[in-house]
Design a binder for these strands. Structure first.
Lengths: 139, 139
DNA sequence: CAGCATCCTAAACGATACTG
DNA sequence: CAGTATCGTTTAGGATGCTG
């Protein structure tokens, strides 16, 4: 089923998963999902411009709910990609900014985003072609 | 639904933004999600090494179900990132391979994957620190 | 082998209400 | 402002059975 290194044991944790994202037990897969996830990628992208406060970030990442932003931020902070700077003032002020690692990840991500955005015309054409070919032709 | 082609009613400075994946109405967001999604990214990564048949791909992308692989493959094919080559033999043989655009996207993606993988040690440390700081301590 | 259709559960998500 | 807690909905995902 899920052998990934030649070890015969497939249902107990092994320490062979070290560097294989393709394995479901690779820890980097989790981080990768935080990074590439729907809100993770947009949040990193938004913070790449500079630090932002919670509600500013919420406005920047169009469509994200309070809950999801909070959740995303926690995951990214835990992974060491985002730094949370809270001032104990009243009203409270919390700034989020990328860590150096977060910057690098964001840049890599932005490269991908740019590539996809720049090629959307091709994608659209491909979609039309696909839909055309898969259209239910009857009668 | 409406579209954001004119961007006339935006209340934020848009000069700095040549593209806007941050808008929920941007069509590239959908493609981006196919690409970065849980199975999309792993599928593209797997196919980057060369073309694969359905079940080989299924074994390569550890943990993916038949259904999800099929679904992922359709989305990527529709977006013009994956090419499906079916031979009408018996038993049937279907090979999946990346299109040129798919190759470029996969390379960008692999860059991200490698970056994250190569820095997992830092991530782990950050996680420990985070968990430490957020642990419920009593006494 | 390479899939599609169906059912069902688990997880993600969004809206709302509430706290410091 | 900056969140947390809770709830109802929606979607993703897995298991199974069937087809060419």
């Amino acid at each position: 089923m899920d052998e990934n290194g030649g070890s015969g044991t497939d249902d107990r944790p092994s320490d062979e998963w070290l560097f294989d994202v393709f394995s479901r037990r690779c820890p980097s897969r989790g981080t990768l999902e935080h990074v590439t996830g729907r809100w993770g990628s947009l949040t990193l992208g938004a913070l790449h411009e500079g630090s932002l406060r919670f509600n500013a970030l919420r406005r920047r990442v169009d469509g994200v709910s309070e809950k999801m932003l909070s959740q995303t931020l926690h995951a990214l902070e835990r992974d060491g990609l985002v730094h949370r700077e809270a001032q104990p003032t009243n009203p409270p002020r919390v700034d989020y900014e990328l860590t150096p690692l977060g910057q690098q990840v964001a840049e890599q991500l932005l490269g991908l985003i740019h590539l996809v955005e720049g090629r959307m015309a091709e994608v659209m054409v491909a979609r039309d072609r696909y839909d055309e070919a898969h259209a239910v032709r009857e009668g």
